[in-house]
């Protein structure tokens, strides 16, 4: 009798705890459900970001770029609009709206020459195919003069540098310091007013090249997207998930032994207790 009574009291204590736990478990679940969904979904996407090409997909939404504080490039130059669109934004070379080359410093000029494109920054020369593939990069180690200011064409390719003018041979292998006599057709960007739309599209693309969807997903996943307190908030959500797992196991365990006892005692006893 005593043993039975003790058992009954223990049972009621457990039931009381379970009763207390249930509403907590429920409200924590409801409150954190949205964020758990966010974490779980973003986590799944990040896991397969390469397969889903999320790591190479750039964000083109202006508001999102603004939100990240990504500013437009300081300098945009359009050199040609047809047949190929040739443009530069700071140190990036764009061929037909595709990022072709990330140069070491800002682009000083782009020439279209036969089947090739030639671009220069202050210390490097980039030879590209019309498809935007980098064929060769020249610098001081290959004999290119430093301090390039302009690139031009007059029978041969010319460079205007801080230390004078240089002319290339037909294969663009050697550069010789030569005095210019005839005026050279230097590569100049088109005037800004005539290519407003082109400039706007390059500005957007240059901005979007700094941000991939993978970065956004990682920031949503970690909470960083929601500001400095975001990661702490996500920690709270994680804590809620931990508490819910534990309380869930506890609640489940409270029901599990009953079922076992029912099986041992037989169905008749179970029926009686339930009614």
């Amino acid at each position: 009798m005593i043993h039975k009574h003790h058992h009954h009291r223990k049972q009621s204590l457990r039931t009381q705890i379970t009763k207390q736990l249930r509403p907590w478990h429920r409200s924590l679940g409801i409150i954190s459900a949205l964020f758990i969904l966010l974490i779980a979904l973003s986590g799944m996407l990040i896991n397969h970001s390469n397969h889903l090409s999320i790591d190479s997909a750039h964000v083109e939404q202006k508001w999102l770029l603004d939100y990240y504080g990504i500013t437009p490039p300081a300098q945009i130059d359009i050199y040609q609009t047809s047949p190929l669109k040739l443009a530069s934004s700071d140190n990036l070379i764009w061929v037909d709206n595709r990022l072709a080359v990330e140069a070491d410093s800002s682009i000083k000029g782009i020439l279209s020459l036969g089947r090739m494109l030639i671009a220069v920054d202050s210390n490097n020369l980039y030879m590209l195919s019309k498809e935007g593939e980098l064929l060769e990069k020249q610098d001081a180690s290959t004999g290119l003069p430093r301090g390039i200011e302009r690139i031009g064409f007059d029978e041969q390719v010319w460079l205007n540098t801080a230390s004078g003018s240089y002319m290339a041979d037909a294969d663009l292998i050697e550069w010789n310091n030569v005095q210019t006599f005839a005026p050279i057709d230097w590569s100049e960007p088109l005037t800004a007013n005539s290519v407003v739309n082109e400039r706007a599209s390059i500005a957007l693309q240059a901005r979007s090249s700094h941000l991939t969807w993978e970065r956004v997903l990682l920031d949503i996943h970690s909470g960083r997207f929601f500001g400095s307190l975001g990661p702490w908030f996500m920690d709270l959500v994680a804590l809620a998930l931990i508490i819910m797992s534990l309380s869930g196991i506890y609640i489940w365990q409270q029901q599990k032994p009953k079922k076992r006892k029912r099986k041992v005692r037989g169905p008749r006893f179970e029926d009686q207790e339930e009614h």
């Binding site: 939100y67 990240y68 504080g69 990504i70 500001g227 400095s228």
Partner: peptide, 16 residues
């Protein structure tokens, strides 16, 4: 405002 300034700092950190 605060949120965007924090993000800007974070971005600068990421970029640097």
């Amino acid at each position: 405002m605060k949120l965007s300034s924090v993000l800007l700092i974070l971005l600068t950190l990421t970029l640097s």
